[in-house]
Amino acid sequence: MFSQYKKGLLAGSVAVAALTSAAPAMAADMVALLLPENVNPRWEQQDAAAFVATMQEIAPDVKVEVYNANNDTSVQQRQAEQALTQGAKVLVVIPIDGESSAIIADTAAEEGVPTIAYDRMINSPNTKFWVQADMFATGAAQAQHVVDNTKPGDTLVLLKGSPTDPNAAVIHAGQVSVLQPLFDAGERVMGYENWTPGWDPAIARRSMDQALTQLNNNVQGVVSSNDGNAGAAIAAMEEQGMAGTVPVSGLDCTVQAQQLMLLGKQTQCGWRPLHEMAAAAANVSVRLLNGDDYSDLATEVVQNGVGADVAFVPVDSYSAVGAEGVGYVIENDPSITRDMVCQGEAAATGFCS
């Protein structure tokens, strides 16, 4: 039976309440939110929307500028420079590349501007703060779900994330912690694995097509690192009449992923309360603007890739499986409603009818 990971230490409502006594930020203050891409709808529809909404609630006089780099690291760097030129006093950055994005935090620090790493770590000594779930546990959860729904000797495909995203490597390490002993013992077979630059579903689709061709459709499980990869794998298997017969993991629990789960084509997704992550980043942004302490929000310290200590806020994660998992996500994710999920083919499922 798959175990659920519930390790969060911060609820968005608690973080918001903690700010009620903070001095108001100046009207001229500006915070910049730098998104990595628009391939995954969560960045604009969930993370950015929740960040902006929280800022409006707790610091309505603070201007928020949102940028999207469309998976181009040089564009993201230019957007950061533009934000600084326009007077941003805090940068909240979801880096495309955890290494090259260090220049963003370093440049900001030269101007006395702190950088918050959101979701993905920035490997700079000037990274001030990080908010994220336990991605190692998330990867282990994905792999364990597929293992629990396959049998000894079955062949698996691993569709990994973007090689420049530091989270992708951590997710994969979590997957391997579960899978490698089984591969070594011959209890499962590694049939095919590939990275997915930019988390691009089109690349994941080509990888899955290659896997099915090379393995002559001998695939019994797909360990997919996110929902975009999962959807691509399902589309490839659909053409072979295999969709719905193979367990497929995911991450983010997008509306499409939940619909596929109700249809039995995607069987698992890792869910994180993105609204709480965004609220935490917004709360710390305001504390930084006001020069206030935020140690009550950042309850841990972690080291990034260059050995710098970074204040850290861990948030919840949950393994959503089947209709029960969909119900949990709808109940706990304010950005997703039952009506949004119960569209198209999913509307005819027992969950929606």
Rank of each mutant, 00 (worst) to 15 (best):
M1R: 09
Q4M: 07
K7G: 15
L9P: 00
L9I: 11
G12T: 07
V14D: 15
V14W: 08
T20G: 11
A22P: 04
P24G: 12
M26E: 14
M30G: 05
L34V: 07
P36A: 04
P36T: 06
E37R: 12
N40R: 02
P41K: 07
Q46W: 04
D47G: 06
D47R: 02
A53D: 01
M55L: 02
Q56G: 15
T73R: 07
L84H: 03
L84S: 12
Q86C: 13
Q86T: 14
K89D: 11
V90G: 03
P95N: 02
S101T: 11
I103L: 13
I103Y: 03
I104Y: 01
A105R: 01
T107H: 02
A108P: 06
E110N: 12
E111D: 13
G112F: 12
G112Q: 03
V113I: 06
V113Q: 02
A117Q: 04
I122Q: 03
S124K: 01
N126A: 15
T127K: 06
V131L: 00
V131F: 03
T138F: 11
T138I: 15
T138W: 10
G139L: 01
G139T: 09
Q142A: 09
Q144H: 09
T150V: 14
P152L: 08
L156W: 13
L156Q: 04
L158H: 00
L158A: 06
L159T: 10
L159S: 02
D165N: 12
P166S: 15
N167F: 08
A168K: 14
A169N: 10
I171K: 00
A173F: 01
G174H: 03
Q175I: 14
L179Q: 01
L182W: 04
F183C: 01
D184A: 09
G186L: 06
E187M: 04
E193I: 08
W195V: 09
T196M: 06
P197E: 03
R205T: 03
R206N: 11
D209S: 00
Q214N: 15
N218D: 13
N218K: 14
G221E: 07
S225K: 08
G228S: 08
A230E: 06
I234Y: 09
I234D: 00
M237W: 10
Q240S: 02
G241I: 08
A243I: 04
S249H: 00
S249V: 08
D252C: 11
D252V: 10
V255R: 04
Q256I: 12
Q259F: 09
L260V: 13
Q266S: 10
Q268E: 12
Q268K: 10
W271N: 09
L274Q: 11
E276V: 15
A278N: 00
A280Q: 05
A280N: 00
A280K: 02
A281F: 08
A282V: 08
S285I: 14
D292Q: 14
D293W: 10
Y294G: 13
D296Q: 13
E300I: 15
E300S: 05
N304Y: 12
G305R: 02
A308W: 00
V310D: 08
A311L: 13
A311C: 05
A311Q: 11
S317P: 00
S317E: 10
S317N: 08
S319E: 12
A320K: 01
V321F: 01
A323S: 14
V329T: 02
V329N: 00
I330K: 14
P334F: 07
S335C: 00
T337S: 05
R338F: 06
R338Q: 13
R338E: 15
V341M: 04
C342K: 09
E345K: 11
A347N: 09
G350D: 07
